[in-house]
């Protein structure tokens, strides 16, 4: 019962946040340079056309009226059209979503597999050489600019060693993408038993995900280590030790399980952030994800995609945070904010 109340209250708290998000997105888009109507009308439009379009886009109305029209459109699933392609922005973003999702999910998954065990080891052997080494590595990892480590990776593995494919996106030049089932190339290649496409898309994924894994593992090591250290200090660990339980049992059953909560929060936030946010990595590797799509839109003064992208990444971010909070409350009954 209290859990239900908690979930309801947490959902209600989203309302002001989402209103805030829409206000900020709307205002930012209004500040963008250039006149949206002139852009949308194209170079051959007459002044009358532009005026008509301004009316149609409600650009002649007061600003608050424009805001309400904008929110109303969003509720009807209408995020506007890209003037470059004339297609609905939502559709285009949706087409670029699998690329971002594939890259980020795969990288984060590997980063978790590496980061959590290393964090646990660092905590168990606190102060040892290994701990210091891991500490050094993780400070280094959070300090590396991804748009630089990505370039270095391309230079070393593609240009010098020639073991990686060129950074041209999700699939090689001469390989046909797998038949469209879900939009995720790896999954689709497996489903359609397309060997060459699978090999090509996996090898294209290698360098961008390596770049992301380096950046993502460090914070996971850090938080696992410190959370594990906190838990190891607790009384119940001491009494478990005193009662003669075997060390692995204590570490993995009693300690790690409790230490994972902050780790999950961090990973959840990270995931929400990264799904839309790996603009820089996508840019370097010509990865056709949502981030790269939006950067192109910015340079083409294409309002609608930018607006929708910023809005949707914020919603995604907030949604994942909320889900993590609720999961947290389910796992740990002490938490009721």
């Amino acid at each position: 019962m209290r859990l239900t109340f908690f979930v309801i209250r947490r959902l209600l708290q989203l309302i002001p946040v989402l209103i805030g998000v829409s206000v900020i997105t709307f205002t930012t888009a209004r500040l963008l340079p250039g006149n949206a109507a002139i852009m949308a009308a194209g170079p051959l439009a007459s002044p009358e056309d532009i005026e008509r379009l301004e009316k149609h886009m409600k650009l002649d109305r007061p600003i608050w009226e424009q805001y309400f029209a904008y929110v109303n459109d969003i509720f009807h699933g209408d995020f506007g059209k890209s003037w470059r392609t004339g297609r609905p922005v939502l559709v285009e973003l949706w087409e670029h979503f699998p690329a971002s999702f594939e890259l980020v999910t795969f990288s984060l998954f590997v980063a978790i597999l590496i980061g959590i065990p290393l964090g646990v080891v660092a905590a168990i052997r606190q102060g040892s050489r290994l701990d210091q080494l891991l500490r050094g590595i993780s400070v280094g990892g959070i300090s590396i600019p991804v748009f630089w480590s990505g370039l270095v990776a391309i230079f070393v593995f593609y240009f010098l060693l020639k073991i990686a494919p060129p950074p041209i996106g999700r699939i090689g030049f001469s390989v046909r993408p797998p038949e469209h089932v879900t939009g995720f190339y790896i999954l689709d290649s497996i489903l359609t038993l397309n060997g060459p496409a699978l090999a090509s898309s996996l090898s294209q994924l290698a360098l961008p995900s390596l770049t992301l894994i380096i950046a993502m593992t460090s914070p996971i090591i850090r938080i696992t280590r410190s959370s594990m250290l906190d838990v190891l200090k607790e009384d119940y660990i001491r009494s478990a030790k005193a009662s003669g339980l075997r060390r692995p049992v204590i570490l993995f059953r009693d300690a790690l399980k409790n230490a994972l909560l902050p780790v999950i929060t961090l990973i959840g936030g990270y995931y929400g952030y990264s799904l839309g946010g790996e603009v820089l990595v996508e840019q370097i590797f010509s990865w056709p994800g949502m981030g790269r799509y939006s950067v192109e839109a910015i340079f083409n003064l294409d309002y609608a995609p930018v607006q929708a992208f910023v809005m949707l990444t914020a919603v995604l971010y907030v949604a994942i945070y909320t889900i993590v909070d609720v999961l947290y409350a389910i796992i740990d009954p002490r938490i009721r904010y």
Binding site: I24, A29, L31, L32, Y273, V279, I298, V306, V310, A314
Partner: peptide, 17 residues
């Protein structure tokens, strides 16, 4: 409200504006 955007993306949109 500011915190509910991924930082880099908000920065990107603001600096574009």
């Amino acid at each position: 409200m500011i915190k509910s955007f991924p930082q880099f993306i908000l920065a990107m949109a603001l600096v574009a504006a």
